[in-house]
Design a protein around this nucleic acid. Structure first.
Lengths: 340, 340
DNA sequence: AACAAAAGCCAAACCGGTTTGGCTAAATCG
DNA sequence: CGATTTAGCCAAACCGGTTTGGCTTTTGTT
């Protein structure tokens, strides 16, 4: 690796002090009244030798790194991947680079990652937390470290947060099925633990109740995230094979939908004739499946943008106490719900 | 933000020099014969006050940042997202954090990003290049900066590279269609520019020729990446509507497949009866589509792992000149190709 | 007891920037 | 023409670590 030129180098070659050079190269030459001649000389030399400031040194000196950390459960999940893309793009426009990590659903991993990023002196964090990590979140808050939670949050800790309207989203899905005449509607979801999941469950039960539909034994299936492929089989089987079988299913996440569809296919259940289906959250090929899948889509781009906006505000100290957003979802109606 | 404790702070509190403390906290206390008593005192104090080294300072001092940069065209593309996940995971196990950026297919953006990462003093780079950026790649090479190209590479520049066997992958796809009796086989791909695309085209033509099948006018469609949605329509229409229409199509990328399927659906072409289909590269719901899509799947995890392996070797200076890998693909046969 | 060897730690330089107070020389003022 | 002001730049401190040479003190040797 070729040695890079440093301020020292320029200083020696030009016989001008480091400080002056630094000022000039940061555009503060006029303000600090460095003569035009000197400025030109410095700038010309810097360009010629392709001088680039060492950001570590700069960061150390200025007490900020111009980096923001992004922690998500899994960057290869399309949902988080898209958010990441958006966040990175916007952050870069404001001069920040982003370092990311996937924490799985592990509290310890998440905790380590947060610490690791803090050690790296990131200026701020965007976290889709496992929601098992109250301690770190509280600590960040206590230390007034700039951060915003996305997608997952801790209802009891007052922090910046950008998520989606889970209740509304699921409600719309259930309503849609009801409108189309389905009354025995099931809900396939994850074991409780995440607030978002809790809210989606609420959305389901509230809407059912609102319409006077009873939620019978077996209407709700809570699967273990680690074990979906296995558990889905039973869940779907019992739902469709009961004597008074189910007419519609709302899935709480895209991967539950995918898993569910695989099982339905295996069982040769016809969608939507035998059972109608709606998915919360989107997968890229949902429109290609036969029948195309009706889904509640989340405003991913908006979510990413908003998160960065809030973080930037905090970094600039234009802080309100904290901000919370629940972005509206949109129901995209396709054949799987029985429409048309 | 609470002030963090620094070595200075510990030094003053304990009345022990910074240097000694640094040594002890880095586990070099014995080696540098610091007495047990002193070591304990230091460690206890550090733990109690939750001392964490400032990685910027450390990096500056040690001339390395323990960060690696990852540049891909688009992190929200499932292919790159999965690679990113893998890379990050493995890098972290070796003490590195990864900072990423999406460069689109823009040479300038890519160039900026590389520079930005170098300024940040990343220790190494993993790049899925636009392949329009010879200059930077050559410069990196000339400066002996550790980096490895993935997925996209420059055949004329001898660099580390991990990609997949594009020729073999497409070959297998074409062979499969031929085996199933299709002879008029088309190829939907992107406009030339990427080596991988070039290789896939080669795979197609070579295999066709090998089997004595002629490649007629209109068998190959090259679409503009920026304009796929629009161009796909014509491409598919002319392919299937010609008097001597096509019996099978191989798509060069997953998103071309998705776009193609949408069009086929619109035209009510029956897959695989009217036309059989195979996709190079995978999309998560390809098994759910009706019919399920036969696809050439790429060893994403292996690709990510290998890239990191090579990079780590370079970072440790265990360098051979350079290494190149073309990982084998796998053909997953499903109904869309007409099998069964 | 005298001296060498080993133990234990410190001080200082360094990494590469940023920022500030102040020195010197030129320009302006009375 | 001497006294101020202003322009133009430098030197030094600082950010928070790492690393090395060497000074003291203790221990060991004969």
């Amino acid at each position: 690796m070729m040695k890079k030129v440093s301020l020292q180098d320029i200083s020696q070659s030009l016989n001008i002090s480091k400080g002056t050079i630094s000022l000039v190269l940061n555009g503060r030459g006029d303000e600090k009244r460095v003569s035009k001649k000197t400025q030109e000389k410095i700038i010309k030399f810097a360009q010629k030798h392709n001088y680039k400031a060492n950001q570590l040194a700069r960061g150390l000196s200025m007490g900020k790194s111009d980096m923001i950390g992004l922690i998500v459960p899994n960057i290869s999940d399309s949902f988080y991947a898209r958010i990441a893309r958006r966040i990175e793009r916007k952050a870069r426009l404001h001069g920040y680079n982003v370092v990311f990590s996937s924490a799985g659903e592990s509290k310890d991993r998440e905790s380590e990652l947060i610490q690791s990023m803090l050690d790296r002196q990131v200026d701020g964090l965007i976290i889709a937390s496992s929601q098992k990590n109250e301690n770190d979140i509280k600590r960040l808050k206590r230390n007034k470290f700039p951060f915003v939670l996305i997608d997952r949050h801790y209802p009891n800790i007052k922090t910046n947060y950008v998520g989606v309207d889970n209740i509304g989203g699921i409600s719309a899905a259930v309503e849609q099925l009801i409108t189309l005449g389905r009354r025995r509607i099931g809900f396939v979801t994850l074991k409780p633990g995440l607030e978002a999941i809790h809210e989606r469950a609420l959305g389901y039960t509230q809407t059912m109740e609102k319409h006077g539909l009873s939620i019978e034994e077996g209407f709700i299936k809570e699967l273990d995230y680690e074990n979906i492929e296995v558990e889905i089989s039973n869940a779907i089987k019992t739902m469709v094979s009961s004597p008074t079988s189910i007419e519609g299913i709302v899935f709480a996440t895209h991967y539950l939908t995918a898993a569910g569809l695989r099982e339905l296919k295996k069982l040769k259940i016809r969608v939507p004739y035998d059972v109608a289906i709606i998915s919360f959250a989107q997968m890229s090929a949902f429109d290609l499946i036969e029948p195309p899948i009706t889904s509640v889509i989340q405003p991913v781009d908006e979510l990413g943008d908003k998160a960065v906006d809030i973080l930037l505000k905090n970094l600039r100290k234009e802080v309100k106490d904290y901000e919370r957003f629940k972005l509206k979802t949109e129901l995209v109606i396709r054949k799987s719900c029985g429409a048309q």
